[in-house]
Write a protein that binds this DNA or RNA. Structure first.
Length: 426
RNA sequence: GGGCAGGUGGCAGAGCGGUUGAAUGCGCUGCUCUCGAAAAGCAGUAUGGGUGCAAGCCCAUCGAGGGUUCGAAUCCCUCCCUGCCCGCCA
């Protein structure tokens, strides 16, 4: 949702910003609806006011035993008028809401312009991608050779875009999640949360999955949704709140499965576990005051980077251009890890500052000491990290061509129960 | 799943058809008193929206959505949620 008041004051700025995402001017239609709505509302409120007044008079007259017939007739005619106005007002208001909730967030000033991923800008790079004389097998080949990844079994029980990991690889996956959670909670100041994985419509609307991205979501037969990321739940924990004494950012992290239909991704990344209907992700969410969100965004991105540094995986950080950013984001940093089999950097984390677009939808506010009015908080979210993709990166970057095994990264040793290398059983 | 009891302001808790956006208490803010503090007294203290230069005025909101009525926090219907008991089950 967008701030109608400031849109009224400066429609040109809104259109100019949306143009950076390639959208045609939106404000003429919005302002027309807005004006129409306010006119109807004022008219309706005038009628309601008179109705309230007349009803009070009727009460007074009746209590004195007088005849309130004329007043009652007046109210009766007002009611007809009000019923019509109410319907019209609701219709226009709904249209306005539909238009506004389908429009993406304002792009931050320092985001580079561009149409697609080709205009994204590398901010920094860590480590050196391993050069190999012979091609490194991909994680599927490695996992299947070890007998620890079984995609046929996954297809049998669930279908395409699912996986079955076993033994050392399953443990490696769990160890990665453990490292991430422990790092965020003990070193980065995040509070661990164990949230519901099924949520209602309002929550999905709050973080902008609804109404626009309904087709990407798995719904349940009783009207709930499987979360596509724990950002949805964590962020909505402050919905409908007015925070008092709110100074320091609220920081939360969670490790949850995520469910996505990948409706628009047919044919992309069909091999392996890069893109599946179900995957685990450690998420970071921060709630801040408006003036703190920029710094928090940098901080959060560094928290995600720290995990890759601990794992000693080569990666780069890029800032997404205006045309490549997600719907809710004002600004987004992606972390891309080196995937040797593809000889490419692939996205493993996305950290976004969503400004107040989610908080407006969620009615998540705070009040400054002594202030009369409430303000909307800012919300940020970032993957810290996608566990499945981290597994791919570890498998391929720590692959030992000598025996087809996988060395365990130093940072994961505490979680592997003495195992230093994953090798084929027996 | 069955039965019972409930959902009111930051909290507790009245109200059960009319002037109640809502008594009272607690909390919080300001003032008075005091050398200061406490106590006491006085005043204020919801959210969203419309309108206006402003002061202000107006509308909506007592879990949500419908309905009855001139008028609903109060009556009726549906749904949601909470507590307790029974049943079932990781």
């Amino acid at each position: 949702m967008h701030d109608l008041k400031s849109l009224r004051d400066n429609p040109a700025a809104f259109d100019a910003n949306w143009a950076r995402r390639g959208l045609p001017p939106q404000t003429p239609a919005i302002l027309e609806l807005d004006e129409k709505r306010r006119k109807l509302q004022t008219e309706l409120q005038t009628a309601q006011s008179r109705r309230n007044e007349a009803s009070k008079e009727i009460g007074t007259v009746k209590s004195k035993g007088g005849d309130a017939g004329a007043l009652m007739a007046e109210v009766a005619s007002l009611k007809d008028k009000m019923a019509t106005l109410e319907i019209q007002e609701k219709e226009v208001a709904d249209q306005l809401t539909d238009v506004l909730s389908a429009l993406p967030n304002m792009v931050a000033d320092d985001v580079p312009d561009g149409e697609d991923e080709n205009s994204n800008v590398e901010v920094r790079i860590f480590g050196t991608p391993k050069k190999s004389n012979s091609a490194v097998p991909d994680h599927v080949a490695i996992g299947e050779a070890l007998g620890m990844m079984d995609f046929d079994a996954a297809a049998k029980v669930a279908g395409a875009r699912f996986s079955v990991n076993k033994g050392g690889i399953a443990r490696l996956h769990r160890a990665l999640a453990q490292l991430m959670l422990d790092t965020h909670t003990t070193e980065h100041g995040y509070t661990e949360v164990d949230p519901p994985l099924l949520v209602n419509d309002e929550v999905m609307y709050g973080t902008t999955q609804l109404p626009k991205f309904r087709d990407d979501q798995f719904g349940t037969t009783d009207g709930r949704w499987l979360i596509p990321t724990s950002e949805v739940v964590l962020t909505n924990l402050v919905r409908d709140e007015i925070l008092e004494n709110f100074e320091e950012p609220i920081r939360m992290t969670a490790m949850t499965p995520c469910f996505r239909k990948e409706a628009g991704s047919a044919g992309r990344d069909t091999r392996g576990i890069i893109r599946q209907h179900q995957f685990y992700k450690v998420e970071m969410v921060s709630i801040t005051r408006p003036e703190d969100s920029e710094a928090e965004h940098q901080r959060m991105t560094e928290c995600a980077e720290n995990i890759l540094k601990k794992l000693e995986l080569p990666f780069r950080t890029i800032v997404l251009c205006s045309g490549d950013m997600g719907f809710a984001a004002r600004k987004t940093y992606d972390l891309e890890v080196w995937v040797p089999s593809q000889e490419k950097f692939r996205e493993i984390s996305s950290c976004s500052n969503c400004g107040d677009i989610q908080s407006r939808r969620m009615k998540a506010r705070f009040k400054r000491p002594g202030a009369k009015d409430t303000e909307f908080v800012h919300t940020l979210n970032g993957s810290g990290l996608a566990v499945g993709r981290a597994l791919v990166a570890v498998m391929e970057n720590y692959y030992d061509p000598e025996d087809g095994g996988i060395f365990v990264p130093k940072a994961l040793l505490p979680y592997m129960g003495g195992v230093t290398k994953i090798v084929k059983a027996g």
